[in-house]
Write a protein that binds this DNA or RNA. Structure first.
Length: 566
RNA sequence: GCGCCCGUAGCUCAGCUGGAUAGAGUGCUUGCCUCCGAAGCAAGAAGUCACAGGUUCGAAUCCUGUCGGGCGCACCA
């Protein structure tokens, strides 16, 4: 479809005396006006004429230049209407010849993008809150893959820090009556909550916790170390179950602990840049160059131990050395904005030119109606429960509406999980979301299942066409006259992927997918595909196939399955 | 107190980085399965684009301020 826009752009730039970049092509308000539009206001000054006069004059000239496109002046706008049959043939063939690779590009060839995603903390069950980073990050990775980038998805596990000392202390004290094997994460969570409850009135316990972390950090006590390893291993196994269900994999799973041996050299590296100072006994980097009130970045505490920021610095150095990334994206909640500002502030003060390639892809918080989620207070919704209930609901609907569907459990898993994922990617990532069971279990309207259902219906038509041996003839593209909404959507797909990647915004894709599903459903209700004249059926089957494939690609990029039946 | 983010229909959101009469879903009121899958389609009612200024041919979109909500602000991660 780009070819039409390009043609309009070239003709306009020649006739209007603009550079091609100055020609801004947009969509008309009302699709009946045309497929593309050009507002003549910017030319008014240059030509010293009223926009409507310019539009009328230019439209006439453009009609001489343009092929298969009609230009019409409407007030100050020039609207362009592509010949319906040409539009249909061009778009449908573009998809069908490209197949699953429709929408891919090579713009990222030879460039690497590192994505830090998911990054849960060990020993706590994943809440619905963790869904956001995982699902947004995974969608971004797939989007960049299709744009030709080499991507590295990193799960930066929270496996270090003082809470592990607490956990080990709790395990020492109550481990005997805890069943760690059958449901390890829930057991660890129980220990964690109990520790916090009893810590206050029990200084001995608090000291045991601190001592255990010191031992862990010094590496002096192999027994403590092996307990930590055990906890980590059990947790990762549990997480993998969730990742499998979400269809998410990682290129690198590295805990913060991995960077332990590199912390000294990291600190030295920052020190040798001459930007560190001692303040109140702690080693800091002053960041008042960002703004007067920006708090400093702490590299080392008074007691000599390191912090989150130190480990994150070590990690970002490591990533740069390993990958020399084009972009390094941290898909992390907006509550950590300051942390990343500080991280980048340190890189900036070190005069590392790749500092601007490091981006915090922040997203809004998932909240409950009664406030912020808190694992410690037991005010959480666990991700596994959400997935289970959504799948259960999907299965209930399948039994009601498609009792003969083969393998209903497997499809219910795809629909239920799809509903949850789509619900999270539906809105702009920066917006806070309030968790709502009713919304997440709804499969109608602007939901994942709606798109999946559309895809399944199109697939069903294609199966029938094949069974009846219809759709094989020469296509009569005029039979797609009413499908321009569908065609224009499909034609825009490559642009949407590019834009979603540039802005690191999966919701641009989900919005587009919904729009395509809506368009094709409207068309489908009015236009019969099978049993028409062979040319008509051929063209419509081709459109159905092109739409079905594009929907499947869109769903796949977002992380949803596209079952052929449901 | 300071900083960052958000504010569009009852509710949940789009609005293509400044353009035409602000659009969807949901909920509500209707209509559509003897016809390719009704998890669908079509129609109706529903808006001071938080408020007030400014910038210009033109502002939901950019700037300033106010209000409301969220988040953060040195030894947690």
């Amino acid at each position: 479809m780009q070819e039409f826009i390009q043609q309009i752009r070239n003709a306009l730039s020649e006739r209007g005396g603009l550079s091609p970049e100055e020609v801004k092509i947009e969509q008309p308000r009302d699709p009946a006006l045309g497929d593309f539009a050009f507002p003549c206001f910017p030319l008014a000054k240059k030509l010293k004429k009223a926009p409507p006069a310019i539009a009328a004059e230019l439209a006439e000239q453009l009609n001489v230049d343009l092929e298969n496109i009609t230009a019409t002046a409407t007030g100050p706008y020039i609207n362009f209407l592509v010949d319906r049959a040409t539009l249909a043939e061009t778009v449908v063939n573009a998809v069908l010849t490209a197949g699953a690779s429709y929408g891919t590009s090579q713009e990222g060839a030879g460039k690497k993008i590192v994505i830090d995603l998911s990054s849960p903390n060990i020993a706590k069950p994943m809440s619905v809150g963790h869904l956001r980073s995982t699902v947004i990050g995974a969608a971004l990775q797939r989007i960049f893959d299709t744009l030709g980038y080499e991507t590295v998805g990193i799960n930066h596990i929270g496996d270090w820090g003082s809470q592990f000392g607490k956990l080990i202390a709790a395990l020492d004290r109550w481990g005997a009556d805890t069943d760690l094997e059958s449901d390890p994460i829930q057991a660890l969570l129980g220990l964690y909550v109990r520790y916090h409850k009893e810590e206050e009135g029990d200084p001995e316990l608090a000291e045991a916790g601190r001592a255990a972390f010191r031992a862990l950090e010094n590496g002096t006590d192999p027994e403590v170390r092996s307990k930590w390893e055990h906890i980590t291993k059990l947790s990762l196994l549990e997480f993998d179950k969730i990742y499998d269900r979400l269809g998410v994999g990682f290129d690198e799973v590295r805990g913060e602990a991995y960077y332990e041996p590199h912390l000294e050299s990291t600190i030295q590296r920052v020190e040798s840049a001459g930007i560190t100072e001692l303040s109140e006994g702690a080693l800091i980097v002053d960041l008042t160059h960002i703004s007067e009130n920006t708090p400093p970045c702490l590299l080392r505490k008074t007691d000599g131990t390191t912090l989150y920021a130190t480990r994150d610095l070590a990690a970002v150095f490591h990533r740069w050395e390993l990958y020399e990334f084009e972009r390094c994206l941290y898909v992390v909640g907006g509550d950590q904005r300051l942390h990343f500002q500080q991280l980048k502030g340190v890189l900036d003060r070190m005069k590392l030119e790749w500092e601007e390639r490091v981006e915090h892809i922040s997203f809004g918080m998932m909240r409950l109606p009664e406030g912020r989620m808190s694992t410690r207070k037991g005010r959480v919704v666990f991700l596994e429960d959400v997935l289970d209930r959504a799948v259960e609901e999907a299965l209930r609907i399948i039994k009601e509406k498609s009792p003969d569907l083969p393998d209903p459990e497997a499809v219910a898993e795809q629909i239920g999980v799809g509903a949850v994922i789509f619900n999270d990617l539906r809105r702009e990532r920066i917006k806070d979301v309030e968790f709502n069971w009713e919304e997440i279990l709804s499969f109608e309207g602007e939901t994942g299942p709606y798109v999946q259902y559309t895809h399944a219906r199109l697939s069903s038509i294609l199966r029938k066409a094949e069974a009846r041996e219809e759709g094989g003839g020469e296509a009569d593209w005029t039979a797609l006259e009413e499908a321009s909404g569908v065609l224009l959507r499909i034609g825009r797909f490559p642009d949407v992927i590019r834009s979603a990647g540039r802005n690191a915004e999966p919701s641009e894709l989900s919005t587009w997918v919904l729009g395509l599903a809506r368009e094709v459903n409207g068309w489908y209700a009015k236009n019969r595909v099978l049993g028409q004249d062979s040319g008509v059926t051929a063209a419509r089957v081709a459109l159905v196939k092109a739409t079905q494939e594009t929907l499947a690609t869109g769903l796949r990029l977002l992380g949803l399955a596209a079952p052929p039946e449901m």
